[in-house]
Design a protein around this nucleic acid. Sequence first.
DNA 1: CGGATCGAC
DNA 2: CTATGTCGATCCG
Length: 864
Amino acid sequence: MEDMKKVGNSSCNDVLLRMGLNDNKAGMQGLDKEKINKIIMEATKGSRFYENEVKKDQQVNQRIEKMMQLKEKITTQQLLKAQLQVDKLVIELEQSRNLSNTIVHIDMDAFYAAVEMRDNPELKEKPIAVGSMSMLSTSNYHARRFGVRAAMPGFIAKKLCPHLTIVPLNFEKYSKVSKEVREILTEYDPNFMPMGLDEAYLNITEHLEERLNWPEDKRRFFFNSESTTEKDKEDINMSAKFNEDGYSSSPVLFEDNTPLMDDHPERDQSVENLIIFGTSAEEVVKEIRFRIEQKTQLTASAGIAPNTMLAKMCSDRNKPNGQCRIAPERHAVLDFLKDLPIRKVPGIGKVTEKMLKALGIVTCSELYQQRALLSLLFSEASWRNFLDISLGLGSTHLEKDGERKSMSTERTFSEINTAEDQYSLCRELCRDLAQELLKEGLKGKTVTLKLKNVNFEVKTRASTVLSAVSTEEEIFAVAKDLLGTEIDSVAPQPLRIRLMGVRVSGFLSEEERKYQQKSIMSFLKSGKETGFLRLQPGKSNQEYFTKNSEASSRGSFFDKKRAARQLNSESRSPNETVGEQVFHDRKSSANLVEETKKVTDLENSNVHKIFTCPVCFEEQRNNNLEELNRHIDDCLNGTLVKDTVEISKNDNLRENTINFFPKFKNENVDECQKTKKDHLAGTDQCASTSDNSSSNSTEKFTQIISDKLHRERQPSNLSDIARNVCMKQCLFPKRSSQGNEDYFEKTERREETSSSCLFEAKEDSVLVCPVCNSEQKTTSLVSFNRHVDVCLNRGLIQELTEKKDFPTQTYHMENSNRVGGLSRGQQCTNPSQGTKRSGLTTSQSVSKKAKSSNSKHTIEMFFK
DNA sequence: CGGATCGAC
DNA sequence: CTATGTCGATCCG
């Protein structure tokens, strides 16, 4: 969607800036900027929405503050060194600059509004917007003069422009028009890339070559006089502007007074309604726009450039109904960028704009000038993106969209605050989502619940299960648990929400889909050797395939927590049926038919009667699974309990908590420490070196689970946790052991973490909470358990997220990844550079080593 | 992996 | 009254 981005002026309120609303190209009939802002403020101030915007804005300001503090500490030395390194990269990038492609970006003007106006002539000459009272999708140019624009709620737009006509969305219509446009585009590039309904990228490089050999009649078109307005014909006679810097701007379709070179169209005055287009890129794009208008009566703007990023920015230059080209020459590219505000760059949004502005960067050339500083303040991905931008580099080919990564559905509504309604809404969303998933035959392993409370605060909660889900019941089984947790987290207050969404991601790959069936079978069959199975015939198997439930099958803490919670929600809910219904769902409704069948098969077969217990490694000749299960249960409880230390005996919950990492006692630490020194990220090695330690059986246990159960890379709750604990213990403290400790960070976070490095000072090990994943400096398991307990209750998590640290990111000057910047250049690994862009983060730390060692060599090189 | 954020349409 | 819906990417813990 054509979008109005502007560099707001710094003055009054940042919040309006945040909302992107204080822009104004006020014309005579419209309002001026001040009035617009005033009206918006009046309508918005004091609202919950506004309060949240203020909060978000403050967060951004804090980020900026941190960044500025970081900037303060940067020394000249560091900057010089960074400059050298970045400039080395610049040379590489320059060398890989590829100007040989001709990329076109087509952007329909005020698309939805234009369609509506076309279909209802009464709307022409009136300010209109498309959308609803709560949200507008777009507005026509008349309405924009009043400050009415996309992403603005209709009721505010009405205050700005009382005569505004709001037309409801009609997607089917837009899709139809869009399809018509695409039919044209595909003739010029069969692989063109649509971006939404109203935009598309084309690579017309090939078309241009072929076109040279075309007979003229293939470039000849007739006006359809009925669909061509007088104004269009007038436009034909206007001239193009040619800019000696190498890019041309023409706000009109056809240029007439250009010299009659081979390249230019013949506008035959004698034959009315005939037009012949030339063979240049400009002519091709004019032809495309001409044909679009002829076919749909809608105008489009276009940009022509050597890559997608430039093409996109180009199409913005002369809208509406104009086009612009950046010649395939370096100087033309750089000249285009020279004074271009960074906000115009796709991928630079409000936040990035504001952060860069704090550094005095507003235009792309300033972005280039500050490249060294940026490389010290931002994450690698971010500053390299900035560098690409300031050099005018982007994707030179259009890559097909990869496979989809997630599917979701969400809904906004007036406040819902009863658990009952929330659960049923959740189910409804799951139902819708399941339907969509079915259409594409997708199954995913991660379910994410999204909630927005009435204060507009957004939360997401995710859970990954072992077996991919796709049906309403399967998804809901996971989602409702997440929802329940959230309901409980605010209890006894009601959860007051205005939006709920459900997403499924972690789709099975093609391979996985193929082997899904097989591998479950092979897993079951492999029971011969190591039958790690715990199945209770006749009951729902779903529990064995969900993360939480895996633990629950051992009577875990998680399960009890959940049971308790469900009891809670039953007792809390005035309507008893809610809790009950949910409970019922979990037990039976989400039955996985396929698996059930296999289990039955397994049970009935005589082949798999010998199992090796994964805990004690003794062969078990049980005649039925129940017996085997009982054995494993006992075995687990027995071994684990025996191995644990300081268990609070009278507290079952804690006892079970500690059962997750009983094997990691202090004896292992030393060994792991040694291992750590030998290799950097030796997670696996570390794990294997502990084989001969006392964690023998646990390690094998996790191995077995990983190998057998997760041949398809399905994560195992248990093994993951166990590994995690081991890894963290072995590698801790991560940073200081690598000699790349953070220079700036050492004052703050360093101390905090190093104080938790207990096993160096004392013999205690560091335990990692399996819930929040953070290291716990604890000398007693009891207190550790308490932490886990609290954590599970979400209290801690919340606390953590609230006083969330400034993001840390270490930029290693030494091994500077730009050595790997090799292949990136033009055929960059990011296929859609210019269309999709990374978010940004500031890098909190600069290598200390870099600071101390960069002096001599660097300076010499610098002055060389 | 999970959660938050950014950005695009 | 009344401030969207969907998706991908990135970063951090």
